[in-house]
Amino acid sequence: MIVADKKPIEEIVEEIKDKEKILILGCNECVTVCEAGGKKEVGVLASALRMYFLNQGREVSIDERTLERQCDHEYLEEVRDVIDQYDSVVSLACGVGVQFMAEKYHTTPVFPGVNTCFMGVTEQRGVWSERCQGCGECILARTAGICPVSRCAKRILNGPCGGSTNGKCEINKELDCAWQLIIDRLKALGKLDDYEKITPIKDWSTERAGGPRKVIREDVQQ
């Protein structure tokens, strides 16, 4: 999932301090799972903002709504009939949702309510960590299912480097060396011979280096 973290309320207040009719818009997908932008967080933020503005002596109307997703036309369309009632939207979706909202409702200011962090997993409640950088050319088949692009600080494809000590990375003693994990798992899979195979130079044009990307699937296009 896409992992996001809540923005400090002070930052959100700064974004919307001169607004009068605000919609706090949550998303039922990834940001709900990582407890940053779901219905519950929408309720907490809206309540806190209402109290903040009242305390400042300002009458600001703050409504709450949570959509199934903010990255699909069909769900974003659900607010079309009410969007004109607001002079701004604070979207608690990831950066994708915020942008799609901004594209769709061109004249309504949209502000982000979360910091979008990465694509990752829930290690335990309250702990999320990165697993994928969407490089566009998955190499997990060759690396025992552990991604050196997202989990190695240097993103090296033939590792480990000299900074790996006792299974940890030199940039942070808490951080596992991805290549140590790869070697350990290759061993567990009985495929350690694969480690000897040199990974060829990766085509980075499918990653962000090639500019903004697009996937076009004619087989499912309408």
Binding site: P8, I9, E10, V44, N55
Partner: peptide
Amino acid sequence: KLLDAIGI
């Protein structure tokens, strides 16, 4: 924390 941040 929130109540502190919003002055309540």
